[in-house]
Design a protein around this nucleic acid. Structure first.
Lengths: 150, 150
DNA sequence: GATTTCTCCCCACATCTACCCACAATAATA
DNA sequence: TATTATTGTGGGTAGATGTGGGGAGAAATC
């Protein structure tokens, strides 16, 4: 049973565009892994995010409290929803990745899976490398601000 | 069984104006899909909204709390009701779309189906594109407000 | 009541999905 | 180290799904 993801590992899409989810990530809040489901969305960074379905559902539940009579709420819900897809692992623990999402993250064959808190990030290795290099290093000010929280 | 819709997919009306509802959207709160029923209404945005009948019934229940003594309430309920149609999927999971509703959303052949929380949005691809482009981006203030909720 | 239009069941079939089995690779245990 | 269990990978195939169209019966119209 897992309550917080961690770690990084490299995997490969097979000929059928299936991605094997490492066994250690299949036990979110449970020992069962049958019928395990993720919701995959486009990330704010050029990667894909995979939430355990129960986690995504919690967020969706909150979004339902937003009034449909506000245009901005509808726009936000629409954008959020259309980029999310609910996908079930097969009995071998693999997910059939839609081409549309693979294209977004520029994933071709190799996939770096990063376990982060309550979600997984899926990166193309090259994109991840470039993204890390172009990243402005976290400065002291950032950690000063963090200090307000912790 | 689904408790929250997600995703986007493109479909086509056939010669008989039938729209195939993707199988993954036919299992709202149930594993059964026989006799599956949606209520379709005109959206606040230029699209159609399809609620699983049980969800629409919940909303209708809320509307009953509006006082009948207010003219604007009566007008709103009237408009809402006459624009809503209860439609059953045929045995192949298709819905026969009334021309009047198709015209409202300017749907001709292609239909983008967006799964959003507890309803589906049905868009003409062109209209959706234009709508998204003309949309004022969600600004910082909006997310500041959201932060109060989450 | 007769005719036309509409609705929806049924069948057909191409495509896609996900199950199953096989087995290699890795990790865990004796 | 040998043995066993778990995990990852590949690929065939049955069943699910999406799409088209004929036609019987219902509904609307004349």
């Amino acid at each position: 049973m897992i309550t917080s993801f961690a770690g990084e590992s490299k995997h490969f899409l097979d000929e059928k565009s299936r991605l094997s989810i490492p066994a250690k990530y299949r036990r979110w809040l449970t020992e069962e892994e049958a019928e395990y489901t993720f919701v995959i969305t486009k990330g704010a960074d050029p990667c894909l995010i995979a939430y355990p379905a129960v986690e995504w559902d919690k967020f969706a539940e909150k979004l339902r409290n937003l009034s449909q009579f506000k245009k901005k709420n509808r726009a936000f819900i629409r954008t959020w929803s259309r980029n999310s897809i609910r996908l079930k692992c097969d009995k071998q623990g693999r997910i059939l990745m839609p081409q549309r999402l693979l294209d977004f993250a520029n994933i071709k064959k190799e996939v770096v899976i990063i376990g982060a808190l309550n979600y997984l990030e899926l990166w193309d290795p090259e994109v991840l490398k470039e993204h890390q290099e172009s990243q402005i290093p976290l400065d002291d000010d950032y950690f000063e601000d963090l200090a307000d929280i912790f």
